[in-house]
């Protein structure tokens, strides 16, 4: 079984078909990343496409020094940054507004869960991009601190401080939203 790194090296050599394998493994994660970063569904799909276009374009510059995931998300971050820069301000989108919640919980539990999710997401969406990003990468993309530090090109201690601030802010916003809701 080839690792993602091996697959990307094959793509670099010109065996482009292996990019499909990398796409299948990462498309959901990437899509969710963009959605949680505040883009709507259509834009998130565009960003996934754009990311892979760039992966193809930059394939010859891939070096196996870092993990493929880190390299991919570096490109993804740049893609979404370019987008935000063009838009001028952030497009805040509640990623769960269009979803049907299907579960086996009771209606009241569903309502309560839905309420909580909604508050989390609203709180997350209200954070500045930089803070939102490290929470999304850590909580939803399951990146380790090491990976995130490498991605953001900052040292570990700086990242720890930023993460603490981000979580504090998120908590604060969450409490405000819950208070308002009540």
């Amino acid at each position: 079984m080839y690792s993602e790194q091996d697959l990307m090296l094959k793509v670099k050599e010109g065996q482009l078909g292996y990019l499909a394998n990398l796409f299948e493994k990462n498309k959901q994660g990437l899509f969710s990343f963009f959605v949680r970063m505040g883009l709507n569904r259509a834009l998130s799909e565009d960003m996934v496409q754009e990311t892979f276009v760039r992966v193809l374009a930059y394939r010859t510059s891939y070096r196996a020094e870092s993990t493929f995931k880190a390299w991919l998300y570096r490109i993804a971050r740049n893609t979404v940054s370019d987008h935000f820069r063009k838009m001028g301000n952030q497009e805040i989108h509640d990623p769960f507004v269009e979803q049907d919640f299907k579960g086996e919980n009771s209606p009241l539990e569903i309502l309560e869960d839905e309420h909580q999710h909604s508050m989390f997401d609203k709180a997350l969406a209200s954070l500045p991009v930089e803070q939102r990003e490290i929470i999304v990468l850590s909580r939803f993309q399951q990146f380790s601190y090491q990976d995130i530090a490498e991605l953001l090109n900052c040292n570990l201690n700086t990242l720890k401080t930023r993460m603490r601030t981000a979580i504090e802010k998120l908590h604060e916003r969450y409490q405000v939203l819950c208070g308002e809701a009540q």
Binding site: A20, F31, R41, S44, E45, F52, E98
Partner: peptide, 14 residues
């Protein structure tokens, strides 16, 4: 919480 799925169109474009 169910995760939002991208559409088949995204796959097709890729």
């Amino acid at each position: 919480q169910p995760v939002e799925q991208p559409s088949q169109q995204m796959d097709a474009r890729f």
